[in-house]
Amino acid sequence: MFKYIVKRLFLIPPMLMGISLIALLAMHLTPGDPASMRYGLNPEVSGSARAHLKELYGLDKPVIVQYGGWLKRIVTLDFGDSFIDDRPVIEKIKERLPATLILQISALILIFSIALPIGVMSAVKQNSFFDKATTFLVFVGFATPTFWLALLLMRFFGFQLEWLPISGMSPWYAQDYSLPHRILDLLWHLILPLFTLAFTGLAGISRYTRYSMLEVIRQDYIRTARAKGLKENKIIYHHALKNALLPVITILGLTLPALIGGSFIFETIFAWPGMGRLMYTAILQYDYPVVMGVGIISVFLTLTGILISDILYAVVDPRIRYE
């Protein structure tokens, strides 16, 4: 087990090298010719920001030097200072990270607590009305522009019914609230962004659970359990479910990039003060160090998530030895 984790960790340095290369490539798209700036919202601002960036990251030095410097920055998480308020980028990200993590982690919990039962149910009652209805919903779910869903929910629950707050995390007066009150207030503001973010992962995970469950149900040991005369409930929830959940753990790792990407859109729509929103304002203000910083941190979050799901998989499945 320990050996496997160490082995897995050794894969990270080459990953970092590749990631820094791609990031460097992005920065080299800052060309000097005016034609490419034509599309910038304000060519003058974007032009001077580009020059500033060149200086900060030494983009006029030989490529090898640039690469070394950039790799060092990534490893030490030093992305320079923001062009807008001259504060270190990493400070700004640290401020925003908790809000993003709250949203992400609660979305993950919500996705799994809804998607798993749905997947299991539709596999057990295959071809039933329930199965067909969820299959249909999954199809629609995959095709729904989630930012549009966010708008619809905002209009219905926020404006029409006035049940839920439509944006922000905590209003200024929340400072005076007691702790339980503050937590309630946080949850209150969390409902809409959380629901829309969870929606992005729901369709995939429930589909996958169903698929994996269908595979397991046809195995010999399930037939054996049935032949022994075990109750159906015991067979499904004790014998089948455990095995069906194993592959779902890997899907967790694969869903993360989409989920973290989704945070960009929903944090912007709901004015949720997280990393995604920071990225949005940074792009509009040509705050390139922040753009690069948030981009790299989003990769780190994904990498961590994939690592955790890989290790989890090795822990729960004794058949996997990874020699």
């Binding site: 791609i22 990039p257 792009i283």
Partner: peptide
């Protein structure tokens, strides 16, 4: 390996990093 590295980027953030430098237009 290149595929694995690119897959580690949440796609929308990768798009945004490039878009931030190139500026928005339909071609980009």
């Amino acid at each position: 390996r290149v595929v694995e590295i690119v897959m580690c980027f949440p796609r929308i953030f990768l798009i945004l990093m490039f878009l931030a430098f190139l500026g928005p237009s339909i071609i980009t």
